[in-house]
Design a protein around this nucleic acid. Structure first.
Lengths: 207, 207
DNA sequence: CGTCGAGGAAAACGCTCGTTCTCTACGATA
DNA sequence: TATCGTAGAGAACGAGCGTTTTCCTCGACG
């Protein structure tokens, strides 16, 4: 049984190292630009092992996106969990972005990148990207509702636009301090969406 | 000289057809996923001709991005040129987006896609993408200033985030009617940026 | 009419990549 | 100790790609 156990641990360790290497390389250089040989080298395993852990490159790509989705959501939830006041918690999304943008290996959103690269040519990638963004939108909707927005769906969509835009702008370096700009915009939108007595705010302005 | 002229016209025609085919294919399927053979087939020229018009695939990619930059900027300028009132002209950017998003072959922003795909692996592509976005930001700054924003730079950055976010959301289908959501957000930001004081006094600037 | 140069079709070349196969080494077990 | 199954290293394979070359055709010009 010791033998079996040791084999199992090795397989787990191999899977972990492969996924780590794949995540690093795919995120840094894109999916098509990274070969299985490079992943093998970076993970320090044999090709045989690689293919017995992940049956194909497509399977590894799916695992990569799934893992990234989970880590990103967990990190965001952790960041938001430390904020009590609802309005501040909503705005804390942009504090989370600012931290993320500052990391050394930041290269934009894996899902936007993967979707732009493979697009509708790879239905699994497209589905993973849409699922990731749907989760994000749902979270923003909850935050908007808790912050007292009159129409949480509209504010959630607007916040989503700011988040996506900030990520893209940060990746390309097209706007100065995009997280802070997005945060101030979000505050203005929240103010407008919670203003008690104004009919000219942003809900369905013109039919 | 007739001979010379005819050769020249053929070369121009060939360049036009090659660039058209490359633009369509690169935009629809991504750059790495499209081979020179497919471009040759779609353009209806020979490989020899293709390579004497564009010395390499990289050169063709650059021409593709350049052409798309020019066409996109021209189309936007044309759309904005029909609007006289400054605030409405600024908001007309989002009407332009709505029209664009509705086109049959819409697949997001070529520059965001190309940047996400090749990223820093291809400095010319990265430079073209940044230049495109810089031009857009400059135009937004002008529109923001003309609309009376207190700080046109900040509003320009925020509008840029909304535009990029709307494009990404439209491409991935993650938000409902992203152009309209961005437009209403822009209106709220403009109101906040032109309000004489920080209170939420209503301004009847928009019908 | 014979020659020549340009142009098109397609083969060829060299390379990369995803995936599989071969060969060798080694550790566990009877 | 002899054997067997497994793992690792790397060659091998087949496909695709960017690019070049070959071969053939054809029209212009002396």
């Amino acid at each position: 049984m010791d033998g079996i156990r040791q084999v199992r641990m090795d397989e787990e360790e191999a899977r972990r190292r492969i996924l780590d290497a794949a995540e690093r390389l795919f995120y840094a250089r894109g999916i098509q630009a990274v070969g299985m040989d490079q992943i093998r080298d970076a993970a320090g395993v044999s090709l045989k092992r690689l293919y017995q852990c992940y049956a194909s490159k497509d399977a590894l790509v799916e695992a990569y996106l799934e893992h990234r989705d989970r880590r990103w959501n967990d990190a965001l939830a952790d960041h938001l969990g430390r904020v009590g006041e609802p309005c501040e918690r909503m705005l804390a999304v942009f504090g989370f972005l600012a931290e993320w943008f500052g990391t050394a290996d930041f290269r934009g959103c894996s899902f936007i990148n993967a979707f732009g690269e493979l697009g509708p040519a790879s239905p699994p990638v497209a589905a993973a990207a849409r699922a990731h963004k749907r989760t994000l939108r749902e979270r923003l909707r909850t935050l908007a509702a808790e912050a007292g927005a009159a129409d949480p769906d509209v504010l959630a969509d607007q916040l989503l636009l700011l988040v996506e835009g900030a990520i893209v702008a940060a990746a390309m370096g097209t706007a100065a301090d995009p997280a802070e700009r997005a945060r101030s915009a979000a505050r203005a939108l929240l103010d407008a969406a919670t203003a008690p007595d104004h009919t000219l705010v942003s809900r369905q302005s013109h039919p």
